[in-house]
């Protein structure tokens, strides 16, 4: 705050920085567990890996209360409209993490049933590789998202 260029007597900060800081410190996740990755997502939230260290342990059942969607697992053609509807119900600003090979690219299932990458339905900010990604990978993805929000790289 006290910066040589700031006029004395004024409390000035970069408002964007405050906003970004607030956004990253209490990020609520909508539960969108689909397949194998959902189990790893639950394991990440549970005691051993303890996602609460990053203020991320609150999984909201309602998209209205969430600002991050972790698409954990394969998205089928039948699930695609549901996923888009849940995304549309989330308030701005919102972010999407595509967790795992299936959500990112369709993975090994290049067939009629799967959407070949969830980015065909919703815009994705972070892709987490792995099949399934371990809790460490998911945490790395989440922290990368935090960094990108803080640096203003992902502007919403």
């Amino acid at each position: 705050m006290a910066h040589p260029t700031n006029p004395p007597g004024f409390l000035l900060a970069n408002l964007d920085k405050v906003r970004h800081w607030a956004q990253t410190r209490s990020m609520f996740t909508v539960t969108f567990g689909l397949a194998c990755c959902a189990i790893e997502m639950m394991a990440t939230g549970a005691g051993h890996y303890d996602l609460a260290r990053f203020g991320m342990e609150v999984f909201r059942a309602s998209p209205r209360q969430a600002d991050l969607m972790i698409v954990a697992g394969r998205v089928s053609q039948k699930m695609a409209p549901v996923l888009r509807q849940v995304y549309d119900q989330m308030p701005e600003p919102k972010w999407v993490i595509s967790m795992g090979a299936c959500a990112s690219t369709g993975g090994m299932f290049n067939n009629y049933a799967l959407v070949q990458g969830v980015d065909q339905i919703v815009p994705v900010d972070i892709y987490v590789p792995g099949c399934p990604p371990g809790p460490q990978s998911l945490m790395h993805g989440i922290l990368t998202l935090h960094d990108k929000i803080m640096s203003g790289e992902i502007a919403h």
Binding site: Q77, R84, N110, N111, Y112, A113, Q116, D119, Q120, I121
Partner: peptide, 22 residues
């Protein structure tokens, strides 16, 4: 889809809202 004369590889997303991705 499991008939042998049904195509093996992926099909485009059938969901009509999919083109709205920004």
């Amino acid at each position: 889809p499991l008939r042998k004369d049904y195509g093996m590889s992926s099909v485009p997303v059938q969901f009509k809202g999919s083109h709205q991705v920004k």
